[in-house]
Design a protein around this nucleic acid. Structure first.
Length: 314
RNA sequence: GCCUCGGUAGCUCAGUUGGUAGAGCAAGGGACUGAAAAUCCCUGUGUCGGUGGUUCGACUCCACUCUGAGGCA
């Protein structure tokens, strides 16, 4: 059976993915699957730059608003499971699936046959090792060296989250990570569920940073502070994963009186710049991506013409 | 016009009896397998304002000069 093509539009935050994706979907007759770790949360709209109904222009959007911010256990595994259903749903309607987003791990979960090990998060175990680690730095890594030396060698002792997750996997499955049989460093397309056709949006760094700053200011004008206040008012724990999102975290700190508003805003901008840099590091390693510089095109329509050309000949 | 204090990394500044420089922040690079907008690792990027001079050797001392702030006129 011939494999279907799966289109991707990736890139750092504020590179203009949303506008291009809508234009692109109109041209391709596509349905959009978001690959964004914050847009999945209901009520986190302004801060995640979630496309509004009007902006969506009738294009089907999936993987938006699929979980309440109160839920602490949304994960890549669940994202993959649900997003793959969305992809086949789009295909069954005779449309093309277009994955759009900047969360590299989520993108990889759709490109690669990542069967996550059968080791769901174990809050108790995590809390236990976080505590031990706080008392004695490096103790989690020492434990991992005994359970899974290969993974321990690969992970830095300070990378506590990953070290603890590796322990979690070993304890739950009785096997080491390398024995779990999934690997997204593989370059052979044979094993992939779909044929990935990937486009990346980028801008010269200075232009990207200028857009980030302008967009943060725009979000504030659009009511980001009220959005954050509303979430906290609903009793959402500021420490939960959803509230670690850019903008939410810093403004929540301001609302708690921990800093001045201007400081919080500067922090949002700075952290967003750093995030964009990390996104680029992630995507640069994916050699399948064909990159488009947004400054070389006159607006999203022209850009999507170019991307569409690449998609249809690929 | 005179006096004083400055001019060193993108920014704020250190720099010890003269041996071509270092902190914080910003920034850059990398990693990433059920928290990923999370988490973690690595890196100093420099005509030391300019030109001459003294010296084996000048960011450091001297002269002149450009420039910023303040003070006195």
């Amino acid at each position: 059976m011939e494999k279907e093509k799966l289109y991707f539009l990736v890139g750092p935050t504020a590179s203009g993915k949303t506008a291009v994706s809508i234009e692109l979907a109109l041209r391709l007759n596509a349905g959009i699957v978001s690959a964004d770790s914050i847009q999945v949360y209901r009520g986190m709209d302004v801060g995640s730059a979630k496309p509004t109904r009007a902006e969506q222009r009738g294009i089907l959007h999936h993987m938006l608003d699929v979980v309440d911010p109160k839920e602490r256990d949304f994960s890549v595994a669940r994202y993959r499971e649900e997003a793959l259903i969305c992809v086949s749903d789009i295909l069954s309607r005779g449309k093309k699936p277009l994955v759009v987003g900047g969360t590299g791990l989520y993108v990889n979960a759709l490109v690669y046959p990542l069967d996550f090990p059968l080791a769901p998060p174990n809050e108790e175990l995590r809390a236990c090792w976080n505590k031990r680690e706080a008392e004695q730095k490096g103790s989690a890594h020492t434990k991992l060296r005994a359970l899974d030396p290969e993974t321990a060698a690969r992970l830095h002792p300070n990378d506590v989250k990953r070290v603890i997750r590796a322990i979690e996997i070993c304890e739950a499955t009785g096997k080491m990570l390398a024995e779990q049989g999934c690997d997204f460093t593989r370059r052979d397309d044979e094993s992939l569920p779909y044929i990935p056709v990937m486009a990346g949006l980028n801008l010269p760094r200075e232009a990207l940073y200028a857009r980030i700053e302008a967009r943060v200011d725009e979000m504030l004008r659009a009511g980001l502070l009220d959005e954050v206040r509303g979430l906290l008012g609903r009793g959402i724990d500021p420490a939960c994963p959803a509230m670690q999102g850019l903008g939410y975290k810093q403004l929540a700190a301001y609302l708690r009186g921990e800093c001045a508003l201007s400081e919080a805003i500067e922090a949002v901008k700075r952290e967003t710049r750093r995030f964009a840099k990390r996104q680029l590091t992630w995507f640069r390693r994916e050699t399948r991506i064909r990159w488009f510089d947004a400054t070389e095109y006159n607006g999203p329509a022209a850009l999507s013409d170019a991307v569409c050309g690449y998609f249809t000949e690929a």
